[in-house]
């Protein structure tokens, strides 16, 4: 699904060139639940921006769903973003003057989906995250966990191939964090590649695979206990 080869990215900070990504090779398959860990400044947010087509890479190649994603115009990037990628942010990033269902329906508006269909789909996805009864509420009337679930519904409503979550539990307590992670784990079954950026080990352990980033390079890429279990179960299943 995601195929990164030798990806480099630098930022110019005044006179200094900040080399953030220093040759990333990464493959993420459909249906995988991957966490990317790293200290701040390790380049994990930049990596997510590159994968999410919010930022361009300087060097290397990036294929998403078999399509080359290098050198896109901003308009085409916006199109692909809308069709292939869903975002979940640490601070939820819901539009404050729109109700939950309107927030969820927004990506469909930019895809030109008719209003009725839009609202039907938005309602459906709100129900999936267990918030059907909060559809008419404004974000400020919802708890943090509820807001993040609305954001997840918004990220999924376009049926993306990839869901990118930047510290999705960073602003939540441990109980709601687990609720949100349960929702993200549930998506896995639908063939969506889920990439979670986090610095919390217990969150990372709730994913199948852990990619560790240090100074713009991947230093570790392993299956987690859960992933191993899932993998073993899968192996056992296929073997048996």
């Amino acid at each position: 699904m995601i195929r990164l080869r030798n990806v480099h990215k630098s930022y110019r900070m005044g006179d200094n060139l900040l080399h953030v990504l220093r040759g990333i090779d990464l493959d993420i398959a459909a249906g995988e639940l991957v966490s990317i860990m790293g200290a701040s400044g390790s380049g994990k947010s930049t990596l997510m921006n590159v994968i999410g087509l919010l930022d361009r890479l300087d060097e290397g190649s990036y294929e998403l769903d078999g399509v080359d994603m290098t050198g896109l115009t901003e308009t085409r990037a916006a199109r692909y973003r809308g069709q292939l990628i869903g975002f979940v942010f640490q601070s939820f990033h819901l539009i404050p003057f729109k109700t939950a269902v309107e927030n969820v329906a927004l990506p469909l508006y930019y895809q030109g989906v008719a209003r009725r269909e839009r609202n039907r789909l938005a309602g459906e996805y709100l129900e999936k995250v267990g918030l059907a009864d909060r559809a008419g509420h404004l974000p400020r009337e919802l708890s943090g966990g509820q807001q993040q679930r609305v954001a997840i519904a918004r990220a999924l409503v376009t049926r993306p191939k990839v869901l990118l979550a930047d510290e999705p539990t960073g602003a939540l307590d441990s109980v709601t964090s687990r609720e949100v992670m349960a929702v993200l784990q549930g998506i896995q079954g639908e063939g969506v590649a889920v990439v979670i950026i986090t610095h919390e080990h217990d969150i990372a352990e709730m994913t199948d695979r852990l990619v560790h980033l240090v100074d713009g390079r991947i230093t570790e890429d392993r299956a987690t206990a859960r992933g191993g279990a899932v993998g073993e179960a899968a192996l056992a299943g296929s073997g048996g």
Partner: peptide, 16 residues
């Protein structure tokens, strides 16, 4: 700014 950023993250083109 933030709202427009969100809109663009969910697929709004520069022209929209």
């Amino acid at each position: 700014t933030k709202e427009l950023g969100i809109r663009r993250a969910v697929g709004a083109t520069p022209w929209s």
